[in-house]
């Protein structure tokens, strides 16, 4: 039985259309018009226990809205969500006991009190047994390096410290599912690395299911075994990273280091090359092609017949490129991201 089941999940917001200027404002008072915006449009997927899934999409794609329905903050317009066989918005308290939530843009911690007090409150709120609490604190403070700012008030923490404290607070009660909305936003590489290691550790030790949204592709590559990509509220892709690359990233780049230029005006489109630039300062030619249409070997052979090639390299497409392609494929019309 999958731990998360999402079936035809849809969320529609109706917002007032505001007129401009004084006349518009008066007209709105008398006759307010609404428009319907579908933020999440019939999305379905299931997630198994212990998976780490990246939930990706451009701004305004509906990521936050979907996560808010999964955690029970928002009530779906239609469709169904089941988390550990319960409906989150109907059983908020039972669901909350089993989940941990971190929203990168907004701290869950209590602003005026020291980090340690927050943890004590969590202990009491979730009824965490003293043994578990102690063990978790040891593990978390060790991996996340929290002891340095344990007694500092939350409002005085730096962004990186706050994020680490937030993560710790969200995981103290051993949740079986953790939802992370942009957990590494605005953090430096050292903190990012710590957080990734921490998540991998928790996932490995406890089979914790993790669903995260991020714009940082290295998060995806280091953490996620699977990605779900949505755009305009619809699911565009669901599968593992390798499949994402093989299905979508047929694009490769070849770099040839050559002696001299060989006439940029020549037509080499018959080789399947889509983009072709010569960099005189490094003496290199950069070529882009679609792997499904072009043979790298014949491209290389074609150049070697005409010039001396000292060296060459082939770079597969970065996840970032792949995802950008998917985003651009689906024609985007702006819908402000619901934070």
């Amino acid at each position: 039985m999958s731990i998360i089941q999402v079936d035809q999940l849809t969320k529609t917001f109706s917002r007032p259309i505001r007129g401009t200027g004084a006349i518009g404002a008066i007209r709105d008072l008398i006759n307010r018009r609404y428009e319907e915006k579908t933020a999440v449009d019939h999305i379905s997927f299931t997630i198994e226990r212990g998976e780490i899934v990246g939930y990706l999409g451009p701004n305004g794609a509906g990521k936050s809205t979907s996560i808010k329905m999964l955690v029970g903050i928002l009530v779906p317009t239609s469709g169904e969500v089941r988390v550990d066989s319960e409906i989150p918005y109907k059983n908020r308290r039972e669901n909350a006991r089993k989940i941990g939530v971190v929203f990168g843009q907004r701290s869950q911690l209590w602003w005026d009190i020291p980090v340690s007090e927050t943890f004590e409150l969590m202990k009491c709120m979730y009824n965490i047994p003293a043994v578990d609490f102690k063990r978790n604190m040891e593990l978390f403070t060790d991996v996340l390096g929290i002891q340095d700012f344990m007694h500092v008030a939350v409002r005085q923490l730096s962004l990186g410290q706050r994020m680490r404290a937030d993560l710790c607070a969200a995981l103290l009660h051993n949740p079986s599912i953790v939802y992370l909305d942009e957990p590494t936003i605005g953090l430096d590489v050292v903190v990012k690395k710590k957080i990734r290691e921490f998540l991998l550790e928790v996932n490995a030790q406890r089979q914790t299911t993790i669903l995260l949204t991020t714009h940082d592709m290295s998060d995806v590559e280091k953490l996620c075994s699977r990605v779900i990509i949505i755009n305009n509220g619809r699911k565009m892709f669901d599968g593992d990273l390798d499949r994402l690359k093989s299905d979508y990233s047929a694009g490769e780049t070849m770099i040839l280091h050559v002696d001299h230029e060989i006439g940029l005006d020549r037509d080499i489109s018959h080789l399947g090359v889509t983009d072709f630039t010569y960099h005189p300062e490094s003496g290199s030619i950069q070529l882009r092609y679609d792997k499904r249409q072009a043979k790298p070997a014949s491209i290389l052979a074609w150049f070697m017949e005409r010039t001396a090639v000292h060296d060459f390299e082939i770079k597969p497409a970065e996840v970032e490129d792949v995802i950008r392609d998917i985003y651009q494929d689906s024609t985007s019309c702006g819908l402000g991201e619901a934070q």
């Binding site: 029970g72 909350a96 939530v101 709120m125």
Partner: peptide, 21 residues
């Protein structure tokens, strides 16, 4: 502001949590 979110992800009735806090 949407800060009310955090009252809905705790194992406590949101009204109670508001009052407690």
């Amino acid at each position: 502001s949407g800060e009310f979110d955090q009252f809905l992800v705790r194992p406590l009735d949101p009204l109670k949590l508001l009052v407690f806090r």
